[in-house]
């Protein structure tokens, strides 16, 4: 089976300022279907730029990017928008849900822009199904302001899933969440990955990266490490550990 993401010698140079910034310097990468990749690196390492390139939000200056067998490196604005809509799902650090719009309507949004035409009933059913996957179907009529951070991120994941993407891209999905909620959200990702969905996420937290199957480390626009995760964390056991730790904290708190 061909890799779902295949990038060859990709470069990105920003020359808007006085000095051109060479953010990504020749990265070559293949991601197979069903993989779960964490992209790591210090700030300024080029991981966000690489993520934007992977997400078809930006075009590479040089190099080739095959997404699901399609060369997307030179597509125009609208064609890229269609690729994003049909083949990719986005989860952002800041959730990026539309305010004053219910969870269900947020999830429906990608279907409204798609080239595929759905009936109103189909849209509703699929959106509800995706909310069900992330365990929020009970709260479909809640506004983002009525949901916790973790819940908002799960709505965002449901939105990313609704057009059945080839790859789910997550940019620091746990960056705004506490440890327990982070573990919960990673649990959702692991569950989706177990069902065969390819996930690429950017993170700077090592323990979050340990939930993934493969870690990539970027430095100064170059890939410096690509390794499989040996001691992988699993959401269920991590949450258990957290619970017992909290219980212990309460016990000591009660003693003193």
């Amino acid at each position: 089976m061909p890799p779902v993401v295949k990038i060859e010698e990709i470069h990105k140079i920003y020359d808007s300022g006085e000095i051109p910034v060479h953010a990504v310097r020749g990265v070559t990468l293949e991601i197979q279907r069903g993989d779960f990749v964490a992209l790591m690196g210090a700030s300024g390492s080029g991981k966000s730029t690489l993520m934007n390139l992977l997400g078809c939000l930006d075009r590479p200056t040089r190099g080739r990017y095959l997404l699901d067998g399609i060369d997307v490196s030179q597509l125009d604005r609208n064609a890229l928008a269609d690729i994003r809509n049909q083949k990719l799902g986005f989860v952002f650090q800041g959730f990026n849900l539309l305010a004053r719009t219910t969870a269900l309507e947020n999830v429906e949004l990608p279907m409204l822009y798609g080239a595929r035409k759905f009936t109103t009933k189909q849209i509703r059913e699929r959106a509800m199904h995706c909310l069900d996957i992330v365990g929020l179907s009970q709260r479909f009529d809640h506004f983002p302001s009525q949901l916790s951070g973790g819940q908002q991120q799960r709505v965002a994941i449901a939105r990313a899933l609704v057009n059945e993407p080839q790859v789910l891209l997550a940019d620091e999905p746990t960056g705004n969440l506490d440890t327990r909620t982070s573990a919960e959200v990673m649990g959702v990702f692991q569950k989706l990955n177990d069902e065969g969905i390819t996930i690429v996420m950017v993170t700077h937290e090592l323990d979050i990266a340990h939930f993934c199957k493969r870690n990539l480390i970027l430095r100064d626009g170059v890939m410096v490490r690509d390794e499989a995760v040996s001691n992988r964390s699993f959401a269920a056991s991590e949450l258990e550990k957290l619970s017992s730790a909290e219980a212990a904290a309460k016990l000591t708190g009660a003693k003193s």
Binding site: N78, A81, F90, N96, P110, Y113, G114, N163
Partner: peptide, 16 residues
């Protein structure tokens, strides 16, 4: 602007 960004990111065309 952010809302527009979200819409564009999930596949809205400029014309939308």
């Amino acid at each position: 602007t952010r809302e527009i960004g979200i819409r564009l990111a999930i596949g809205a065309h400029g014309s939308d």
